[in-house]
Amino acid sequence: MLLTLDHLTVDLPGAARPLLDEVSLRVAPGEVVGLVGESGSGKSTTAKAALGLLPGGATASGTVRVGDADVLALTGENLRRHRARTVAMVHQDPRAALNPVRRIGDFLRERGADRTRAVELLAAVGLSDPERRLRQRPHELSGGMLQRVVIAGALAVRPRLLLADEATSALDVTTQAEILALLRTLRAEQGAGMLFITHDLHLAAAYCDRVYVMYAGRVVEERTARALFAGPAHPYTRGLLSCSPTLGDTSRTLLPIPGRPPSLSDSFPGCPFAARCPDAEPECETWRPVAVDLPDGGTTACRRVPAAVPAAAERSTT
């Protein structure tokens, strides 16, 4: 396994609940794994944990492994190498990743690309006139163009694990499609694994091999992309699917999920989705979620979805 998170819990003093609550997740080499959920659900915190980066003052239990490395135990040069070479992250905001006074060419050179490769990479991410771009500084490019530069920089280091945190959210559909296709090709060529974070469940289902859905710091469902789309098991996943607009499908009415996503000051004695859930029963308010296996191999954490004990037994006998 390339990336393994095992029961990762991250606590922050002053918060009413953990930022991450028993998050377990895997990414195999060459696999594209989606992480979806609304703002504050813990997606970025999860991705940063793979870099060995926790919020200031946070304490963690559980483990984070990338290959053989116990990431939360890395220090000094090993940690630096891990962050610079093994894992690459593309953030929501490209400006945060670029030094405003340095040229685009310097940014790529720092990541091990010589001039020829830098030009190749810039062309590959769809920037016109790559030669000239090398000499430009961040303020001369639009946000969409900068995001392409950052992606080129991430690809330049040939990482084993690529973390894409809303990396294409601000781009138009055509560009987004181009960049996603490119990321997939390069991932295949370099054999890297990718954790693809998005709030767009439809995009995740179309793009990823497997998808984790997070809510209030927990994984509520883990499925193959196809299964997630065809038969979402958790009421929150179903809610997300029916409230997200899809391209071309304008006749469908959006069904909003009532209420709002929880913040860190909301704590939950039971299922965190109970207040917004159409299937909630009084017992849900005190039921502490545990993931159960689904017949098709996925998992979900809802007490109204019966555990697939028979399916698990079938699997062990075949």
Binding site: E38, D200, C243, S244, L254, P256, R260, P261
Partner: peptide, 11 residues
Amino acid sequence: LDVSIQAQILR
């Protein structure tokens, strides 16, 4: 806005 809130506003 979050997708669930976005859907509320679009509606």
